[in-house]
């Protein structure tokens, strides 16, 4: 039997990994050696470069995961191959998104302890981030424990899609619910040009890292699907 049809990282995977490493190094250099110290918050402000970068890319990952869910449920019964790809994209982006979410939820309180004097407040944006994180942790729990048959796959896809209206309603609800808490003050943008460059580089670096990780995870998932198909084929031939 041929084993053709596997999916190795290839030069895209290695290219992305190298690019991510380069951008990360450049971003770290800009953040710590070039960008000026922020006047009121001091050194603790520097955590924001990767905090916000991770937050943006977390949302991108989860958006892709939901898109993959939509693709899976729209063409799942028609085209097996594309359904498999959409399913693999869903797993890969959800895992990377959850990793980025963990970074956001760890760096955020570290900064808040310095700036607000408390690790955590039930402020709307924080609450929403936590809920997004929990929703996709549940998605991963489904992937891990609900089985990888078509039930497990379609229920996971369904959750990622249902997450979109759910997050909208969570957003509205926690906004009203947590209204009395202090709001995060976002100043009128980063004033220094070096700060902007450092910020842009950080976002790009985390984006490349997320893309590289997703790509590698995707290739592992495709290999796994291929292996499953081979097992089924062996079973069928041996009766």
């Amino acid at each position: 039997m041929r084993t053709k049809g596997g999916f190795t990282p290839g030069w895209i995977g290695y290219g992305l990994t190298v690019a991510a490493a380069g951008f990360l190094a450049a971003a770290l250099y800009m953040v710590f050696f070039v960008a000026p110290k922020e006047a009121t918050m001091g050194i603790s402000q520097k955590i924001f470069y990767f905090h916000v970068g991770s937050a943006i890319n977390m949302l991108v990952s989860f958006g892709l995961c939901a898109t993959a869910g939509i693709v899976y449920l729209s063409i799942g019964s028609v085209n097996r191959r594309w359904a498999d790809i959409a399913d693999a994209v869903g797993v890969a982006t959800a895992e990377v998104g959850v990793t980025l979410g963990a970074i956001v939820l760890i760096t955020g309180p570290l900064w808040a302890r310095k700036a607000w004097g408390t690790w955590w407040t039930w402020e709307p944006r924080l609450t929403l981030s936590l809920m997004v994180f929990l929703l996709f942790l549940a998605y991963l729990a489904l992937r891990a424990f609900a089985g990888s048959d078509r039930f497990g796959r379609s229920v996971a896809a369904g959750l990622s899609i249902l997450g979109i209206p759910a997050l909208y309603f969570i957003h509205v609800a926690v906004d009203r619910w947590g209204g009395a808490h202090p709001q995060v003050v976002y100043k009128g943008g980063l004033t220094q040009i070096d700060m902007r460059i450092a910020f842009g580089l950080s976002v790009a670096a985390v984006f490349l890292l997320a893309t590289a990780l997703s790509w590698l995870r995707l290739s592992i998932e495709r290999e796994r699907q291929h292996l499953d198909a081979l097992y089924l084929e062996v079973d069928r031939r041996l009766g």
Partner: peptide, 18 residues
């Protein structure tokens, strides 16, 4: 699903928050 008793609240409670 094998673990539906645990999985059901894991999946639905985040959506039930609002």
């Amino acid at each position: 699903a094998r673990m539906k008793e645990v999985l059901l609240p894991l999946v639905t409670y985040p959506i039930f928050v609002p």
